[in-house]
Design a protein around this nucleic acid. Structure first.
Lengths: 339, 339
DNA sequence: GTGAAAGCGCTAACAT
DNA sequence: ATGTTAGCGCTTTCAC
């Protein structure tokens, strides 16, 4: 059960270690028979090349860092965990290992960068979700490729894998327009976040495109984090000012659920009195009644796309500034009036 | 910005690379002055030993695998993510990297083991949560240390970091006995799981110790997963058979929340009509009304303890059969009548 | 107390 | 088409 090395394979197959290496890389003009001989030995010995040895000579670690803030990782909606699983899954293809670590959500200049960066034990990093700008600045002096997922600081030099938030907002709002016509509200938080403002832009675009006009009294925006409690409060403010709201597009599922709770507590029937659509699709189907219509974000796919892009960047030794836009999908469940 | 090596340090400090190595390991009888000289060079050059090179000569990867089933990792309560963060955090001390991967919750003999096992790219693995027994069997032929966290298959050969579930169940039940005296129900699912049956045992022990007797009609157990919906249904069955239930001890927070929902829907006041205590402490304080009393499980600590134990096992080249019991704490919030 | 040198498993340039 | 060899950065005897 002790690990076999390239030498063992070479010995068993009666070839040199160079030949084994070539076979492993499916690389050169190796005769069919030696190839088979070597492959047989590899299987028999259960040989796997040593990651360390390979890393040493190639001056590559074979690892990719995956970084997100602790509150993103630890929060209840399994959004970033799905993205991580996507990268982990795709990493198998390109033979990378993924090292996950979190940074403080209040990361500042005094904080140290993750250990694998300091020790140069990664070939590139994937940053998921919004991270403090002081963190991004510290990254500046390192020369490995960096890919931002679901959040892209407006620096042209970095690559990004991003959700088509504008179109998501548009899809949701268009559906609501078709089903309830008008008096469609938007609730959102953390509006500085590009994703959220894009969702709002999609909402506005849909309304204007349909010939309607933007009513600021139907838009409730706060700076705070868009969670359940803030969704509840937003709905309260909205209905206090405006009895005839027919639909709400919430900037994410968490706020949508908070708003639904407010409606339930106040005898507003969903969807008969008021429809509601969320965003992200992170609520399990049976967790809330009625089931929440939403914009599905393909989270795993974002992870796989990020990893694919990373493999591409590393293989071709480019730094980046590539952009991938991930399409979204409208999921109609029970919280919306039918068209 | 290119990585400096041990050679660079040696050159700058005017010593041999062997000396540098010795200083790095704070190891030998090195004169104070050379040590300082070398340390200065290390700082100046921002030298970090190459993980690969070290791994190659030591025949160790310097990595620890962290494995759990996909549904555990992706589920909404951030239980295992906290445990992971604990291991990741503690790994810094012992200079390990942690490789997280999931396995299929229906893992069977046809499934492949995680890549880092096949490639022998880990020095030990931590398994978090219940995993299929066919997975455990496959692990058998490998010789690295294995530590189970929060679930321990009854194989004496493996180490475990486990929650003191019996005491947790006891603490919760004792509190309920003191505050409502009797008619205290237990609801639980997945009773095969040692953690759950231990919690039930704690419940029984508390009742017997207080001079009461076990009433099977107050115990609702299902085989299915202990989630919200099943908590709701359990409460329903309980109250259908038994109008005078004064308190419920739920085997976890998810079931507790389901049960609370049932009580709310049926006009049973919490805690005035019926107290309820959960287990795990995974519900954020404001997510539910009234705030749920529970047994807090120190999740991060379980991770750090597992990693400490792992470092110990590897350092001393032992396979295991060590056991660590993690104490729990009763957290009283608003869902329980005061004593 | 410090240095020289062998060698970990592999890749790649160069030979044959 | 295959073998020989240098060397990646480090640890670890063994000399001195």
């Amino acid at each position: 059960m002790t690990n076999s090395t390239i030498k063992d394979v070479a010995k068993m197959a009666n070839v040199s270690i160079a030949t084994v290496s070539l076979v492993v890389h499916d690389h050169a003009r190796i005769s069919k028979e030696t190839k088979e001989k070597v492959l047989a030995a590899i299987t028999k010995l259960n040989y796997h090349p040593s990651h360390s040895a390979r890393g040493l000579v190639k001056r590559k670690s074979g690892n990719i860092g995956f970084i997100l803030t602790d509150d993103h990782f630890l929060r209840t909606e399994p959004f970033y965990t799905h993205i991580f699983i996507g990268t982990e899954f795709e990493a198998h293809e390109s033979e990378f290992y993924v090292l996950l670590t979190t940074i403080d959500s209040n990361f500042n200049d005094d904080n140290k960068l993750p250990r694998f960066i300091l020790e140069r034990n990664i070939d590139g990093i994937i940053v998921a979700g919004k991270v403090p700008s002081s963190f991004i600045e510290k990254l500046n002096k390192y020369h490995f490729p960096i890919i931002f997922v679901d959040y892209w600081p407006c620096t042209k030099k970095y690559s990004g894998v991003l959700v088509d938030n504008v179109n998501g907002g548009k899809l949701a709002t268009e559906y609501l327009i078709k089903s309830v016509n008008k008096n469609i509200a938007f609730i959102g938080g953390d509006i500085e976040h590009p994703s959220i403002s894009d969702r709002l832009n999609g909402y506005k675009k849909a309304i204007l495109d349909s010939g309607g006009s933007i009513n600021e009294r139907l838009i409730d925006i706060i700076e705070d984090y868009p969670g359940r409690t803030n969704g509840y409060n937003a709905a309260q403010r909205l209905f206090d000012n405006n009895k005839d709201i027919k639909a709400i597009f919430a900037c994410n599922d968490a706020m949508a659920i908070g708003a639904m709770q407010y409606m339930k507590d106040n005898g507003i029937k969903i969807p008969d009195d008021c429809s509601i659509i969320g965003f992200d699709d992170v609520v399990s189907d049976d967790a809330i009644e009625p089931a929440l219509s939403t914009i599905r974000v393909p989270k795993m796919e974002m992870g796989t796309e990020a990893m694919k892009l990373m493999a591409h960047l590393i293989k071709n030794n480019i730094k980046g500034n590539q952009k991938v836009l991930i399409p979204v999908e409208l999921i109609i469940r029970k919280s919306t009036k039918r068209i």
